[in-house]
Nucleic acid binder design. Structure first.
Lengths: 244, 244
DNA sequence: CGCATCATTGAGGGCTCTCAAGAACTGTGG
DNA sequence: CCACAGTTCTTGAGAGCCCTCAATGATGCG
């Protein structure tokens, strides 16, 4: 799905694609070296569960490539996605021994893992890691709160448009397209995963995607490839005050 | 609503009721002294807006007493509460010049404010503040994610039960009651505020509260005072896996 | 080609919202 | 102490949005 460098064994941090956005972004070379001593890579296939809620966590880490999801499940099977993990996002909570959520790979995922105990020691020693983690956590908190508005107050159509807007915006930044060019991207999520993210059923997701297509807000190539001819139109549909 | 100490002018941190839970919890006496130099108190009446979304923020701070809410509003007036601020909770984001949410006092509120620029300087110097803030932010992120499940997947009845559970649990901890004694507390929120928190209308909130009363899960004295005869019953209604 | 997975579409029902009226509580002034 | 407005809350009736159940269609892989 997403391009992924072929990595075998240990990789040099200096050449890491997420070097300047991950939890290690602010580290000096000596700090990086200490991180490198406690790090290792793990690879997961699309669909595979990375961590089960309640499992002992002996590592924390960063998503290097691919997309993973954070989700919660009730006894009767209702599930709600509570986070989308993109490259550079952090997994795990320092100081907590047990995972609070299920983590699942939705595409092939490469993770850079740090052994937990030494990582916690590093956090205490080197302010750069702790500061960066605080910054990232504050960003995630903002994203979670943004999402609470989507879940609590938006219609199914607005929910779909909101999700597509987020992915489209990320894509626009990543590829630095011109403002007026149509945005094209692949959905990294199945209809079911979209439903779990949006608090809908997969049938409703399917219906609303079809409706947006019929209304010309988006067009589809196959099931996953989406073209947005007019991004501001999509933002309107999402109900966000895009201004202008 | 909540008892509130009568404070005039500056107060000594050593006697502060939230001394050991707020952002300053880990500070040594010399760090506290530096904090005290940049702090001041502000008082807000119930119903008053503390901060408008988009306002310049020249301070951050802690709720000392009372209850405040964090909320987002769409252009057409739909609003979603995204956080409940209780005593010791932190307000504002270091490094951000502008408020991202509306902050409203739902009861009389006393806030301990720190001038933003010097506070940010202190954060860079003293690891205790940054560490505590990270810990608090991670807790808030967990709470936000917990709430996403409520908003996305729970029924109206379960939503009400979930909200009451949260308040009841906090009250049980605060008052250290025996396990089996009935829990009694005052709702710090109007029906409308509850609706904004739960992603419902106030009519639905009212109906479901009545239904829980008719079914004996709770009983009411006036509109606000609630008795929970059997907490585990309430937790069941909330749909959480309370286990035993 | 057949199977499995993922997605689409339809029909009907239920939960929550909208609109509306009235009741209960609060504070003010006579 | 009571009258009266203003706010908050409750309750009802009907509509609409989304869910549930079900069948069909597309896509990919052995």
């Amino acid at each position: 799905m997403l391009q992924e460098p072929i990595l075998t064994g240990t990789q040099n941090c200096a050449e890491c694609p997420i070097r300047h956005r991950a939890v290690c972004a602010r580290c000096e070379t000596d700090e990086l070296q200490r991180l490198e001593e406690v790090k290792y890579y793990r690879r997961f296939e699309a669909g595979q569960t990375i961590i089960w809620c309640g499992d002992r966590m002996d590592f924390v880490g960063s998503v290097v490539s691919g997309v993973a999801t954070l989700s919660q499940t009730m006894e009767d099977g209702r599930t709600q996605m509570v986070g989308l993990l993109l490259p550079s996002d952090f997994v795990g909570r320092p100081g907590r021994p047990v995972a609070a959520y299920d983590v699942t790979a939705t595409t092939d995922v490469l993770m850079c893992c740090f052994r937990k105990a030494p990582f916690e020691g590093l956090m205490a020693d080197t302010p750069h890691i702790a500061h960066r983690l605080l910054e990232m956590t504050l960003d995630e908190l903002d994203a979670a709160r943004e999402w609470m508005l989507v879940l609590g107050r938006k219609t199914a159509r607005e929910k779909i448009a909101s999700l597509l807007s987020i992915i489209a915006r990320r894509d626009a930044i990543l590829h630095q397209r011109s403002k007026d060019a149509p945005v094209v991207f692949d959905l990294p999520l199945t209809r079911e995963a979209m439903a779990d993210y949006l608090g809908l059923t997969l049938e409703t997701v399917s219906r609303q995607v079809s409706a947006l297509r019929k209304d010309g807000v988006i067009s589809l190539e196959g099931k996953r490839r989406i073209t947005v001819p007019d991004l501001s139109r999509l933002l309107d549909e999402a109900g966000d005050d895009s201004a202008t």
